[in-house]
Each structure stands twice: as structure tokens, then as C-alpha cells.
Design a protein around this nucleic acid. Structure first.
Lengths: 341, 341
DNA sequence: TTCAATTCCGGCAACGATACCGGCAACCAT
DNA sequence: ATGGTTGCCGGTATCGTTGCCGGAATTGAA
């Protein structure tokens, strides 16, 4: 019922001025140690908490970070936990908004967070976004922006991501080493950077092993289980069907798996499959699905750290680009050869 | 680079007073339509946005809701989306904190959100929490609190949840109807309300069908896949082992499934299994797992709606308790009899 | 004794916005 | 002509906090 105590209350009770109380409560220079003690004691007793709104208004800083993510699936929610961890430690509060992979929603979220006067943004872009003007508006206001996971070349900002090309490469090379010859790739929307990088890795692996790229084996489809299912059915209906599939996400791998099963094909004998993200579900299905693992939690932490650095350095900071390494987790869906010792 | 425009800027440019601008911008009563037009035009031109901090400070309302959840798994993140949806619509911003099922973290989150001067809370309690003093402190400050999903009798507040007892009941009765005789239940921690309610439903179903409750078949374990795995192994090692298991979450159902497979038993022939939550993974594993589905998104929306009502009515609002109905999704793990037409 | 340095503190303005009060015309009615 | 209403607007206090400035009291040294 009772209102939270303010500096004014303390001042009145001790019969001293606001300014003195204010000074006593923080840097404490220029104030008698007795009065300081008295102020401290009373503020303890009244359970005084400085009013964040007043503070923020005064010093034009809210100590709040706006985080925009396309969704909160397994991987992203881990990353957000990482961001949270570091941000809280550094005295920041985090406001998370989901764009639901929608461009319009992303703009809306940006606007709302700007209205909330966040001190900056940590962003993973939606798969639908082709324009990035709304993010550039943030930068025009001179607010720090860090992009993570889903980065895009169209936005000039410090970034944290995994080495997607490397991920695509090790996945594909693994399939090649297992003896698969016609390896297809199920990619995401064409404008999605991560998808393209993973595909580049795929192409590099083919090149390294002198396998000719076959455009028919490269399929773009929505970042989503159902689309992957139908896309895979089409792949399998080809005259010379692929004998392995690399999907750039586990969602899509699941869709592919269902299609492969539907066709009565066996993994890894008839067809190999490797996904991306190493979601827990990949180890639970039958057959278990090989997948490229990434350090999601660490990535989130790195993003928050980079944000805080950027915030402090602002101008003179070179556009740092932090890249973490993925690693391949081999499971039944692609383990054709016996394990070498 | 340029600072956002303020009311003062507009006033200066139009050579009128702050108050007039302020009035022109909102209720617009008591102000000449010409000056109103001028103000509107200029505010448009300067892209004026009212400063939320100043507003909040003045009217002692931040239009922000603090949401505390134990984690952001599939179900909860759906619920949070539901909360978001409704809250945004009503002009509220949502701050989500994860307690990671930790009591200490929950207290910390509560404190931080209070410091952020949120207007109220929407809470799903952590499985570890046995004391609720930190939440009561919120209520002492006269802030509205709504609990959802994981409710607890120890906290007097309006709530939204599904009918967990009903959920436990339909799951168990389904197993009985499929001909299973010795049905075990894998419950969560003893202080977790949802777990106990689901167990009550289980007991009710047994009673209705005149099956004697066997304490050996009631196992409490941590809300987690690994514990469920080991608990199930123990159950299966009994002399008179159960021929069906109802787990109060899908996580646990997965653990149970792995244990059952490990033992070389078949589902549904040797043993039946039903989980709770209807996470997507239940339909992907082999055999697919029957599960009690709940309207998570709807539940989140209902929680936010209830919060907003509570906020407006504050005092005289009876402690509303909204209960949504679950429904059983039958899959391979428990479908012993042929489907009846 | 006088002057300067030091220590400690209070007053005022400001951050951006709204609420309340009251003033000044213009108008109508008596 | 006088009084009251109405329409429109400006001034000021306020929310809780901090930064800046200047002043009083105490102290020390010359």
C-alpha cells in the first residue's frame, strides 16, 4: 500500500537537503561521514530504491537492451538465455520481441522498442526481411546495434555468428566421406544469409572433392518442416534421385526424414541425411539424425558482450565480426561406414 | 544524430506555450482548431514521439508487464507469444524473465522487474519454489498479479490454467480403456501443483474404474528427461512391473520411452505410454507418443486478458480462476485396440 | 587578526511531460 | 452598463533524480 520511499522522504526525515542525500547515496565525496551513515541507515530502513524512470529521464539512458528474434525455438531461446546472462550481469535489462519471421512485425517491434527508449539493439533478422531500412533508422539515431546468428551483409554492424560456411562444409564432406555420391541440399529462402553461407560450404566441399555441382540438387524452400517434406518428395521422385541430403536446419531435416520414410527408403543405407542446429529432437527420432552443432548459449553471451563493448566505444570501434566454430555430431542417419578407430 | 523532438521544440517553433501543445496533441479539448492543426502538422514534420519515460514518471505507470516463466520450452514460449499478442494490442510492453526453474533466480527476477517499475506481473512459478514471499511482496505494493499454467494454492491471485486433473483423468482412463491393468504414473516434484493435480486425475480414473491404487506405481522425480529415464528403469525392474505409464510431461515421456526401448519392450503391445503437453516431438519419435494437448497460445492470451481486467478493477475483483480444457491426442504408444468407428 | 583553503551543504535548474488554476477576451442576457 | 458564461490559452507545480554553483562554517597559516 505505502509508496516506495524517495530521496525527498529521506531528506525530510533527516532534515537535510535533497542534494546531500543524493550525494550521500552514491559517490559519497563531499559529504560528512556521519550524515552519510545516517542517510545510509535510513535508506536501509525505508528500503529505498532509486526510481529508475527518473534516473533514465535525467541521464538519457535506460539500461535496457532491445532484442529482436524471429522466434523462440530451441536454438534461439538458448541464445537469448546467453544474452540475458551477460546483460543482467552488466546491469542491463533485456526486452525480447519475437518477429515471428514476419517483416511487418519486425518493423513494429523496432518501433516499439525505440519508443521504449532502449539503449540499443541485439538483432537476429527475420527470414522474410529483404529491406533493412528500419534497422538503419536505429543507427541513424546513433544507437548501438549488434546482429547475431542471422546476420546480413546489408546491415553494417558488429556481428556474432557461427561459421556457417564451415558448417555446411563439414556436413557435406562427411557425407562424401561416407560414400554418398549425389548429395542434395535443402536450403532456405534465397535472401537468408545463413542459408546461403551453409550452401556455400556445401559447394566448397563438392569442389574440394571434385564433384560436379548439379543445380537440380539444390532446392530452396521455406524454413519449415512441411515445405521440406514436399521438397524432399520431389527430390526423391527424380529419375536420378540423390543418395544424400543436407538440410540447412533440423526442422527441414525432420521434414526430409518423414518424406524419406514415406517413400520407404532407409537411412543411412539408401540415403544419407544431415541437419543443422543439433536440436534435441535429432537424437530422439529413428533413425537419429546427424546434425551440425553450434554453441548457441555461448553465441548469445558473445553477442551481449559485443553489444556492451560497442556501446562503450561507439564511434571508433571497427566493425567487429565474431565467428564461432560449429561441429558435426554424427548419428545414424549418415553413418554408413563402420566407425574408424 | 539529431535528438528526438520534444513538446518544447514545437511550442517554441509555433510561439505558443507548452500546455497548449500538450493539449493539442491529446484530448484536444479546449484548443482552437487552427492551432491544433498547426501543432499536428509540425509534430508530424518533426516526427514527434512522446517521451515514454517522462510520461511514466508523471503518471506513475509504465505500461509494462513483467512476465516470469520457469523456462522457454515449446509450451511456455507459445504461451508467452499469446501474452505478447494481447498485451501489445492493449498498449502494454512485456518484459520476459526466465527463472530457469531456480528459486533464487525467481526472486532476483522479481526484484529486477520491480525496480523496472512494471505495472504488474504475470507469473508461472518455478518447480523449485516452495516459498512465495517474494510474490506476496508484489501484492503488498498493490500491483496486480496473475498466475498462469503453473499455479499454486499458496498464492492468492487470479489465475489461468488448464484443467490438469481432467488431463490426468482422460490420459489414465484412455489407458484403462485400452486394457492396461497396472498403470504407473511418473509425477514431478511433490510441491509442484500441476503435477499433483494431474496425479489426482490419475487417481480419480483408477477409482472410477475400481482399480486399486498401488503406491509402488506412483513415482516422483525431477521434471526432466534423465530422471524420468532412470525412474522408468526402476519401474520396469519391479517383480510385477507396470504395463502402462502416464507421465505428467512429455520430457518425462521421452525419458520413459528411451528406458522402455532400452529394456527391449514394445509400445503399445508390452507397455502403454501417455505424456502431457503434446510437444511436436511426441509425433516424431517412434513409436509416436500419445499426449494430452493443451491450448497454450490461448492460455497465454487469456492470462494477459485477465491481467488487464484485474488491473482495471483492482480491488473489487473476485479472484477469478479461468480453467481451459485439455484434450487427449492418441498416438501409437498407447493405441493397443483397433480404432473404433 | 586576517585571509585563504578546505569541508560540507543547500538552492536552483533541468530531464519531458501533464494537471490544475486562473486570466483575458468576446459574447449574450439582463 | 454590468455580470456571468464560454472559448482559448499561459503559468506554474510536479514526478524523482542529479549536476552545477555558490555560500557558510571551520580550520590553518602567516
Amino acid at each position: 500500500m505505502e509508496k516506495p520511499a524517495t530521496i525527498k522522504d529521506i531528506a525530510k526525515r533527516l532534515n537535510i537537503s535533497l542534494s546531500t542525500v543524493s550525494r550521500a547515496l552514491r559517490n559519497a565525496s563531499d559529504v560528512n561521514s556521519d550524515t552519510k551513515k545516517a542517510v545510509m541507515a535510513l535508506s536501509e530502513e525505508l528500503n529505498y530504491q532509486p526510481n529508475k524512470l527518473a534516473l533514465s529521464l535525467r541521464q538519457k539512458q535506460t539500461h535496457t537492451i532491445g532484442v529482436i528474434v524471429p522466434n523462440l525455438d530451441y536454438v534461439l531461446s538458448l541464445m537469448v538465455r546467453g544474452i540475458d546472462e551477460v546483460a543482467l550481469e552488466a546491469g542491463f535489462t533485456v526486452m525480447v520481441c519475437q518477429s515471428n519471421e514476419s517483416f511487418g512485425r519486425e518493423i513494429l517491434n523496432t518501433r516499439r522498442l525505440l519508443e521504449s527508449l532502449v539503449d540499443g539493439f541485439i538483432i537476429s533478422v527475420s527470414s522474410e526481411s529483404k529491406s533493412f531500412e528500419h534497422f538503419k533508422k536505429i543507427q541513424e539515431r546513433n544507437l548501438p546495434v549488434v546482429v547475431f546468428d542471422r546476420v546480413t551483409p546489408h546491415l553494417t554492424a558488429p556481428s556474432v555468428r557461427i561459421d556457417n560456411e564451415e558448417g555446411g562444409f563439414i556436413a557435406t564432406e562427411h557425407l562424401i566421406e561416407q560414400g554418398y555420391k549425389r548429395i542434395a541440399v535443402l536450403a532456405g529462402p534465397e535472401n537468408l544469409g545463413v542459408s546461403n553461407s551453409r550452401m556455400d560450404g556445401y559447394l566448397n566441399a563438392l569442389k574440394k572433392h571434385k564433384i560436379k555441382k548439379d543445380p537440380a540438387l539444390i532446392v530452396h524452400c521455406d524454413f519449415n518442416q512441411d515445405y521440406a517434406y514436399f521438397a524432399t518428395l520431389e527430390l526423391l521422385a527424380m529419375k536420378k534421385r540423390p543418395d544424400a541430403i543436407f538440410t540447412i536446419s533440423d526442422r527441414m531435416a525432420i521434414g526430409a526424414m518423414l518424406a524419406i520414410k514415406k517413400k520407404g527408403l532407409r537411412m543411412p543405407e539408401d540415403i544419407g541425411l544431415v541437419g543443422f542446429n543439433n536440436e534435441p529432437v535429432t537424437s530422439l527420432v529413428t533413425p537419429s539424425i546427424s546434425s551440425v552443432d553450434m554453441p548457441s548459449f555461448e553465441l548469445g553471451k558473445a553477442a551481449a558482450k559485443l553489444f556492451i563493448e560497442t556501446m562503450h566505444n561507439k564511434e571508433n570501434m571497427d566493425l567487429e565480426e565474431k565467428v564461432l566454430k560449429p561441429k558435426l555430431i554424427i548419428r545414424e542417419s549418415s553413418q554408413k561406414l563402420p566407425i574408424r578407430k
